[in-house]
């Protein structure tokens, strides 16, 4: 661990103590793990009749792959839509026109306060009423709900990204004769967007995770597909663990990528690049909450250029 605020460089006695607790901690953890394994053994959960199907080609070809495709499809559409929504409403919140500013603010705050699932269920039922001829309504409901929620989060990222740029950037634009709108579009927004890229990537993790909510409105994404398989084989424990592992690997790769990007981009913009991985990156009212730590390999939130 890098220099910690909490602990001094240890002397011989505390080094010995640390080592002792290190071994004790590992033993307690292994004991817990062993206990779980034992309980599963007692309940007969290690039998090959339960695990076998999960490693069969039928599972991967006909359940995981189509499900994963649907998950990625909805996440891709939702991400593109959310970025457009976020830039439009983020700029709306920065507009000089008060009416535009208030309206954009109201829209953004509304969708940030709504549970995504509530929105998704409502949209699914609304689409069923408005356009019963369309087949793919659950897909639309998932995508639109994800766009509205994540777009609002991105709008806040855009706004705080522009506001957190050094004042000189905006002043320089105005002093060479650009209007405020031109300054925003050609100087502030591009830098804010570059600074936002890592945060956007970690928002993609949120989109991917939330796309699994589609299961509840019968969108055939990965979780639902795997669940369908499990109900035929009576092995939801095993099948769901595989589905979860897939999500974890994809999301973990995205997070690693986000941290790499944050380090690479920090020389490209006057804004602060950083990775924020929470459920809600910004509080209503505007307090940005950076969850970050040196252990993740990400820059510290206090890093100043």
């Amino acid at each position: 661990m890098s220099a910690s605020v909490l602990f001094d460089a240890p002397g011989p006695r505390s080094r010995a103590l640390t080592n002792l607790f290190n071994v004790l901690g590992a033993l307690v953890f292994l004991a817990l793990l062993g206990w779980v394994v034992y309980i599963l053994q007692l309940k007969g959960q290690w039998s090959w009749t339960l695990w076998g199907p999960v490693f069969g080609s039928e599972f991967w070809l006909y359940y995981v792959w189509p499900g994963l495709q649907n998950t990625l499809r909805s996440a891709a559409f939702a991400t593109v839509g959310a970025v457009v929504f976020g830039v439009v409403f983020g700029m709306g919140r920065l507009a000089r026109n008060r009416l535009l500013r208030t309206a954009s603010g109201a829209v953004v705050e509304f969708f940030r306060a709504m549970p995504v699932l509530l929105l998704m269920i409502f949209l699914n039922l609304a689409f069923a009423r408005l356009m019963p001829q369309v087949e793919d309504r659950p897909f639309l409901a998932v995508v639109v709900a994800l766009i509205l929620y994540n777009g609002s989060v991105i709008a806040e990222l855009v706004r705080s990204g522009v506001l957190n740029l050094p004042r000189g950037q905006g002043e320089a634009g105005l002093s060479v004769g650009l209007t405020e709108g031109q300054t925003l579009r050609s100087i502030q927004l591009p830098q804010a967007l570059v600074a936002m890229l890592p945060a956007l990537l970690s928002q993609l993790v949120v989109v991917l995770k939330d796309s699994a909510l589609g299961q509840i409105i019968a969108y055939p994404e990965l979780l639902r597909s795997v669940q369908r398989f499990a109900s035929g084989n009576n092995n939801p424990l095993q099948a769901l663990l595989v589905a979860a592992a897939l999500f974890i690997v994809i999301n973990w790769l995205l997070t690693v990528l986000a941290h790499r990007l944050a380090r690479r981009l920090s020389s490209r913009t006057a804004g602060a690049t950083r990775v924020v991985q929470t459920e809600a990156a910004v509080l209503p009212g505007g307090a940005a909450t950076g969850v970050d730590g040196p252990d993740d390999g990400g820059p510290r939130p206090t890093a100043e250029p």
Partner: peptide, 27 residues
Amino acid sequence: PIASLRFVGTAYVNIIRNTPLTIIMTF
């Protein structure tokens, strides 16, 4: 400062944070 505890904590956070809540609830 205890490495094994740090490892367990980090593993928990990285695994759970990247799992969809819907899967946890269904599980």
